[in-house]
Write a protein that binds this DNA or RNA. Structure first.
Lengths: 153, 153
DNA sequence: TTGAACGTTCAAAATTTTCTAAACCTAGAC
DNA sequence: GTCTAGGTTTAGAAAATTTTGAACGTTCAA
């Protein structure tokens, strides 16, 4: 595959991700890691491929790593390389943390209203219950996917 | 409930939402609609409550409406009022649209690689399959919540 | 110990986003 | 028709974010 085609694809992924709230650099880097060959890339390679500064790559990769999307692997030479985590996106869009934050927020609102059963609290209560349900169900769904994927391969 | 307490709560919700990528005004307005009394609010009330300009409220509410979180209801007097959609958050965090966007993106990447079965395409394939699975399962999960909520109430 | 490769951090610059005031519509009352 | 309340759009100001060059550590080879 022409590396220029890959570069362009990474930019596209970057645009989509950026519109969902990530920084442009974050999205580009992830897009490149999705399609690059070889899958393991050093900082220098990432800089060159995406035309970003060392600093941007450093910051971008730190966030990508903290998000659990990318992992560092020791490199044969000096330093290390980065690689997409095998089930990166399963973690990436796992909304569990966000949902927990909402549950807390809703509970706090209900406490402010005072009476949990009050009609004024119904919006808060309904929202809290919805997220609670989703948080409870998500792990099983993930597990089911993993089982199915294992069987398919 | 002291309106000042509600206002402060709305600000808190705003901060949490903003950290997830929304604009501050969007988050504040949603926070206020979550806890305000009465639940229906005119533009003027929203301006006063959150200290935002007419313009910000207009823009913020348009986005909130397009996201399916809030609906316009005809007001007794002139003009209209806004109200949280009953199951607002069920829609809000429904990641189906985002996931579809990812599926398309992954498929495009696979097409670029050429051979869908190639090892170079495995990252793209795995990601596509994961989101496809989730998109397929989400509706049933939502439905199950609705059924359970109906029974509880 | 020195030098060089590699990576991180930081302050400032560039860019983008958000907000508002003001001009501008629109619908209904009179 | 004209006026007014209510709402939208827009252009520019204000604020926040992102990026980067440069300075600064580390680690390792020689």
């Amino acid at each position: 595959m022409d590396p220029e085609v890959g570069r362009r694809y990474a930019e596209e992924v970057g645009v989509v991700l950026a519109r969902m709230g990530t920084t442009p650099a974050f999205g580009k880097l992830l897009g490149w890691l999705l399609i690059c060959d070889p899958p393991k890339q050093t900082t220098a390679q990432l800089c060159a491929a995406m035309g970003l500064s060392k600093a941007s790559v450093s910051t971008g990769m730190r966030v990508l790593e903290q998000s659990g999307l990318v992992r560092r692997v020791p490199s044969p030479g000096r330093g290390h390389a980065y690689e997409m985590h095998p089930d990166a996106f399963a973690r990436a869009l796992d909304p569990t943390d966000k949902m927990r934050a909402f549950i807390d927020l809703m509970q706090r609102g209900i406490d402010l209203v005072g009476d949990a059963g009050a009609p004024e609290a119904s919006r808060l209560r309904h929202t809290r219950d919805f997220y609670t349900f989703m948080v409870e169900r998500t792990p099983a769904l993930m597990e089911e996917f993993r089982r199915q994927a294992r069987k398919d391969s």
